[in-house]
Computed example of a mutant assay.
Amino acid sequence: MTYQDFTLKARLSDRARVERQLLALGFTYIGLDEQRDTYFRVGQGKLKLRQGTIENLVTHYERRVDKAAEKTVVYVYDLNPSAQQIAALYAAHQVIGVVEKRRRIYRLGNVKIHLDTMAEGAEFLEIEVFDHSNTRPAPELEARCHEVLRSLEITVADLLPTGYFKSGC
């Protein structure tokens, strides 16, 4: 797999302030994605089908903490899966959970920012620094992740480990 990323997730207490900061830092607003993430039982990591108005994918991944950021180990990353691929996923794996959210997506170079509003109203921020060619050193990606966190004035106390869906994955 020629893909690597580092992510940080945090509680979001003032979305409007963060959005202003993102625009001031030069991030581009990509759009609002209405997402439904379905998780399937697997022996290792997480297997997820994302169905959204912008992003659609099947991914099997594992996140490992590396100095507070999480390095993603990706086993499968298929963008825009076909109806046949989706049917095969449901036929081969047991569904263990679903997460629905509204995600505002911002991007600057190899950094994506997600501002997520969960179905129950809780808000979170995710910083994803990625390398689709797997040529950049991991410490560079991780440092950039922490740099963006500081520039958005998000405190370490607001950080959350490993994502929104935990049980059974």
Rank of each mutant, 00 (worst) to 15 (best):
F124Q: 06
R102Y: 11
G109P: 05
I86S: 04
A68L: 14
H93F: 09
L108C: 01
L152K: 08
Y3L: 03
S13Y: 03
Y90A: 11
L25Y: 01
I30P: 09
A24K: 02
Y90C: 07
V148E: 09
D116F: 01
A143C: 13
V148W: 10
E147P: 02
Q94W: 12
V98S: 14
P137M: 13
V95E: 11
R15V: 01
H93C: 10
G97P: 08
A83H: 07
D66H: 14
L160I: 13
A83T: 13
N134G: 11
Q84E: 05
Y39S: 05
E147Q: 08
V148M: 09
Q35A: 10
L12C: 03
E142I: 06
D37H: 12
G45A: 02
V129Y: 05
A69W: 06
E140G: 15
V65M: 08
L49M: 07
D66E: 14
E153M: 12
R104P: 04
D5R: 00
L159P: 13
L25W: 01
V98R: 13
A16Y: 00
S167P: 13
R17I: 00
F124P: 04
R104N: 04
F6C: 05
D131Y: 02
A87M: 15
V148S: 01
A122T: 09
T155F: 13
F124L: 07
A69I: 10
G163L: 11
R150E: 12
L49Q: 08
G26T: 02
G121H: 06
I113K: 00
R17S: 00
Q85I: 07
V99K: 10
G97L: 10
D78L: 10
R11C: 05
E62P: 07
P137G: 14
I105L: 05
L49I: 14
I105H: 05
E120Y: 08
L115E: 01
R136P: 02
A69D: 11
L49W: 15
H93E: 12
H60G: 07
F27M: 01
R63W: 02
N110I: 02
F40D: 01
R102S: 08
L8H: 04
R102N: 07
L23K: 05
F124A: 04
E34F: 15
D5Y: 01
L22S: 00
E147R: 11
A69Q: 09
D66V: 09
R41Y: 03
E123L: 04
V99G: 13
E120A: 01
T38Q: 05
A87L: 12
A91D: 07
Q85K: 11
H60P: 03
N80C: 13
Y106V: 00
Y75K: 07
L22R: 01
Y3M: 03
V156I: 15
E100T: 15
L49R: 09
D78H: 14
V111D: 03
Y39Q: 04
T7H: 06
K48Q: 03
L115D: 00
L89R: 07
F165T: 05
L23N: 03
V156R: 08
H132R: 10
V98Y: 07
L152Q: 02
L25V: 00
H114D: 10
N80T: 09
P81Q: 06
R102A: 09
Y75G: 04
I113C: 02
